[in-house]
């Protein structure tokens, strides 16, 4: 602990890592670029609050308000929240009462499966990355490359052995099976990403702490981990995004009880043979976007602040 405090003081003298300041001019430029970049997403969100019959109108309706007369009336649609309620319960056959669609369960499944597997991959992957970085094994690079190869093959090739294996083990359709599969799926990226962060750290501080009598565990927890918070945040966000939207494994390995939203979304949108239900798809996607959006937004500080105390590289 004493080591941590003294190095923090030392770091203060050497100046922080970080970013330079730019003024409102940069804000204006960035706002323009970001808004243009965001437009396709904005259109999906607007489609979610569109009345169903206007989804495929010509000319396309693009805005819920006329922005004080800036946008001509033919492009404006009256906003509605009906699509969001029909995500959770809607009329399945004409004339009958609305039925629950089970989407509350699918959202719950998506949250549980993605969170547990990404956290598990983060813990196992960070430990492994630290091992690969600090205590290289014989043939270290070969191990790392084999780990990378697991991400190279399309999921469709691995899926048949996995299905057979899960059936034999009784894991098919269970939370445990899909969570372990996603953990493995995230591990390759986690290990490579965290290793590149650990490699960047200077070993001076760690060696000094060891001389001061810190144990290996303490060096890892108190010296190394705080310096790679940005990497942990970035890895968590990437893993979450990939797992959250994974479709093929979820389609083939989940049962009705453990089904995730991407699978249910695909079924809800394409069922009934009436072509794509645009407003329903947009409503599901908008709701589905909110959790990852919030997580990313709150982790953004860690993503951008970089390391918490600046030690000199090499």
């Amino acid at each position: 602990m004493t080591a941590g405090v003294s190095f923090r003081a030392l770091a203060g003298r050497r100046g922080r890592r970080g970013v330079a300041e730019a003024g409102w001019g940069r804000t204006a430029a960035a706002a323009l670029v970001s808004l243009v970049y965001f437009l396709p997403v904005l259109f999906i969100i607007f489609t979610a609050i569109k009345p169903q019959e206007l989804a495929l109108s010509v000319p396309p309706t693009i805005s819920p308000t006329s922005l004080f007369g800036l946008i001509p009336d033919q492009f404006v649609f009256p906003p509605t929240l009906e699509n969001f309620s029909s995500v959770f319960s809607r009329v399945m056959t004409t004339g009958s009462a609305p039925e629950p669609t089970g989407f509350d369960l699918y959202f719950f499944n998506s949250i549980v499966i993605a969170t547990v597997s990404v956290l598990l991959a983060l813990v196992l992957g960070t430990l492994a990355a630290y091992g690969f970085s600090r205590y290289p094994l014989k043939g270290n690079d070969t191990y790392l490359f084999i780990i990378l190869t697991t991400r190279m093959l399309p999921a469709i090739v691995v899926i048949i052995p996995v299905i057979l294996m899960f059936r034999a083990a009784g894991l098919s359709g269970s939370y445990l099976g899909i969570i372990l599969l996603y953990t493995a799926f995230n591990l390759a990226f986690t290990i490579w990403m965290m290793k590149s962060f650990f490699d960047e750290l200077s070993s001076d501080v760690e060696d000094a702490a060891r001389i001061d009598g810190s144990s290996e565990t303490k060096v890892f927890l108190k010296i190394c981990l705080p310096q790679v918070v940005a990497g942990l945040a970035a890895t968590f966000v990437f893993g979450l995004i990939l797992t959250w939207n994974e479709f093929l494994f979820a389609l083939l390995l989940t049962s009705t009880d453990t089904r995730t939203v991407p699978v249910a979304m695909n079924q809800a949108v394409s069922s009934g043979g009436r072509g794509t239900d645009w407003t329903l798809l947009a409503a599901i996607e908008t709701l589905f976007l909110i959790p990852v959006f919030l997580v990313t937004f709150f982790l953004q500080n860690h993503l951008l602040r970089g390391v918490t105390f600046g030690t000199v590289k090499r």
Partner: peptide
């Protein structure tokens, strides 16, 4: 954009 599901 990265957070969208590829299907949607």
């Amino acid at each position: 954009p990265m957070m969208l599901s590829v299907v949607a």
